[in-house]
Nucleic acid binder design. Structure first.
Length: 570
RNA sequence: CGGGACGUGGCGCAGUUUGGUAGCGCGCAGCGUUCGGGACGCUGAGGUCGUGGGUUCAAAUCCCGCCGUCCCGACCA
């Protein structure tokens, strides 16, 4: 491609309001333009990179036996009602009504459709199957943000494994884990696989692939010493024992006028109410039902864990009025002692504890000597608390680290929820009918593109890995108006094409500084600079974008040299 | 949805407090000089000031509604 004919609208200034590095650079470098919040146009460079990412994914999916399909993105709402996700996904689903008054939804992932297609399978002999597609997904995100990192319309590779049993699913899951690691390696992304909650999708084992970045939206907990790693939504750690002293025979009332916080109570009664000896009682509305979540005074609730424990789709803190009505007191004096008719979930870290302090459900009063096991009515133990950085690793005891990550991929075991809902059954060797066991695996293409930029840039612009660069080489012709330089540039351009290298010829009549700055901004891995000076000496300069190291190379060797370097890095 | 900010030529912004001629930089077009790190001179094009209503002799500026965008919190590839 000749730059003079290409549409590469680079900008000198950062776009207003773009915070994330990838957002700023992709817009400035002319890869993307925003249409509306969460909807972006892919300009020529952006589309080239997007296709490269797609093709890497495609190759690795094919390598594990994946078969590519394309299913509709616009679905009868009926299907989503049948799986139950019409309700579950709520406002995140884009919905519309056609001329006949029939409701439709835009696909946000397509377990339903794949199960429907899979219902045509009849025998275990046809299994396993791995099916995938790469196309657009729609999600009515409440808050699109950070350029391509969180949008409402995006390309996803979603794949599904179909197996006769759990053992088969394990194999398909493992194949995907390996394929994903290969994909991210080729994209130049350093990923950490972490244990995760499968959230609204339903399923058991769930692994997210995280790229460390401040632009990330997830907190990841990792152990520097062993291989423990988990999303904060799922992370656990060791909790040091607490000495609860002499066991009190029963709870006793303690007047606590004006005290509303853990800290204030601890200060007023340091002997009995240090934070680790208090019970923090949180009131949530979980899928419309008032629910108590009890954690240690100095621990924080992890809301996703509450969702996982209850199997609910959504949870929000209760309003003070709701709390007052249900428990008779306002936040600051709440407790689970004597509460009935309200589901109570108690954090595992409180197992075996006693002599604890909690609110009495009467403003200005607390209870001491509380033993949850003894003094609570019916309740459920659950892992509810959020791990904090520095706590001991559950596996090896080393202090845990916590960092922000971008979720670039997610694999999880679905089970039979969708195959049962859509009648996807096959017969086994014995002639017995079984629902197909499914796995579901996603990669967000544009999010990966953004993640690459987040981790591959410098103050000059993007530094694409060769594997996803829109062009592998840019031939920068200085003094393109001078015949010798222009001819040399044309000649190199032709020879690079012949060598199978993707080359951009910067034949624009711009000053050198502009050309260098643009080439660096858009991040082409190799620059071959053709200038009048070098032409006379029979040399050109080769600059590697990543290091910005430049060396002189004889004109007749440069194509072979650079082509070899490109080939090695593909 | 809750909280905060913003909306003025293609891009980045000033002007709004105190109502009265719409301005700057970059970019863009033409001519000339320049040419190895975002050149310079001259000339020129380009704006319903997000939108609807209101106040006023007069609104980018004041008031009300709506729309949109960004940032911080609850969701996900």
């Amino acid at each position: 491609m000749r730059w003079s004919q290409a549409f590469i609208p680079t900008l000198r200034d950062d776009p207003a309001g773009a915070e994330a590095v990838s957002h700023r650079l992709l817009v400035r470098a002319g890869f993307i333009r925003q249409l509306a919040a969460g909807h972006y146009s892919m300009l020529p460079l952006g589309q080239r990179t997007r296709l490269k990412i797609e093709n890497i994914i495609r190759e690795e999916m094919n390598r594990i036996g994946g078969q590519e399909v394309v299913l509709p993105t616009l679905h009868p709402a009926e299907i989503w009602k049948r799986s139950g996700r019409y309700e579950l996904m709520g406002d995140n689903l884009f919905k519309m009504v056609d001329r006949k008054g029939v409701e439709h939804v835009m696909g946000m992932t397509e377990e339903e459709l794949f199960a429907i297609v899979a219902s045509e399978l009849t025998s275990y002999r046809q299994l396993p199957q791995i099916w995938y597609q790469i196309h657009t997904k729609y999600r009515d995100e409440p808050r699109p943000k950070a350029g391509l990192l969180r949008v409402r319309e995006f390309t996803m590779k979603d794949s599904y494994t179909l197996d006769i049993d759990e053992a088969g699913l394990d194999v398909g899951f493992e194949k995907h884990r390996q394929a994903y690691l290969a994909i991210f390696r080729r994209l130049g992304l350093d990923v950490t696989p972490v244990d995760a909650s499968s959230g609204g999708m339903g399923g058991s084992e769930s692994v997210e692939f995280m790229v460390r970045s401040d632009a990330g939206e997830d907190w990841v907990v990792t152990c520097p010493n062993c291989d423990y790693s988990a999303n904060l939504e799922k992370a656990v750690s060791r909790v040091a024992d607490v000495d609860d002293g002499e066991r009190a025979p029963s709870p006793e009332r303690l007047a606590t006028p004006g005290i509303r916080t853990i800290a204030a109570l601890a200060e007023a009664h340091p002997d009995v109410a240090s934070p680790e000896r208090q019970l923090k009682t949180l009131v949530y509305v979980v899928d419309g039902e008032l629910t108590l979540a009890v954690v240690r005074g100095d621990h924080d609730l992890q809301e996703q864990k509450l969702l996982d424990a209850t199997g609910a789709a959504e949870a929000r803190p209760a309003q003070p009025e709701e709390v007052k009505e249900a428990l008779g007191a306002l936040p600051g004096s709440l407790g689970a002692v004597g509460v009935s008719g309200i589901p109570i979930y108690v954090d595992e870290a409180l197992r075996g504890r006693y002599n604890m302090v909690t609110g009495a459900n009467e403003d200005d009063w607390h209870l001491t000597g509380v033993d949850p096991e003894r003094d609570f009515g019916e309740f459920t133990w659950a892992d509810l608390r959020a791990v904090a950085a520095g706590e001991p690793c559950i596996a090896c005891g080393s202090p845990l680290e916590m960092w922000k990550g971008i979720e670039v991929g997610h694999i999880f075991k679905l089970g039979t929820k969708y195959s049962i809902a859509f009648d996807a059954y096959v017969l086994d060797e014995e002639g017995e009918s079984h629902p197909i066991v499914m796995g579901s695996y996603g990669i967000g293409v544009e999010r990966n593109m953004a993640a690459v930029v987040e981790t591959h840039h410098d103050e000059r612009g993007i530094v694409w890995p060769v594997s996803v660069a829109p062009y592998e080489v840019v031939v920068t012709v200085l003094r393109a108006d001078e015949e010798a330089a222009a001819a040399a540039g044309e000649d190199l351009y032709r020879r690079f094409i012949e060598a199978g290298v993707e080359v951009l010829l910067d034949d624009r009549l711009e000053r050198p500084g502009v050309k260098f700055a643009d080439a660096e901004l858009i991040g082409i891995p190799w620059r071959v600079t053709v200038g009048p000076r070098g032409i006379e000496a029979g040399t050109v300069e080769v600059t590697e974008r990543a290091t910005m190291e430049t060396r002189e190379v004889p004109l007749d060797e440069v194509v072979a040299t650079v082509a070899a370097a490109v080939e090695a890095a593909r």
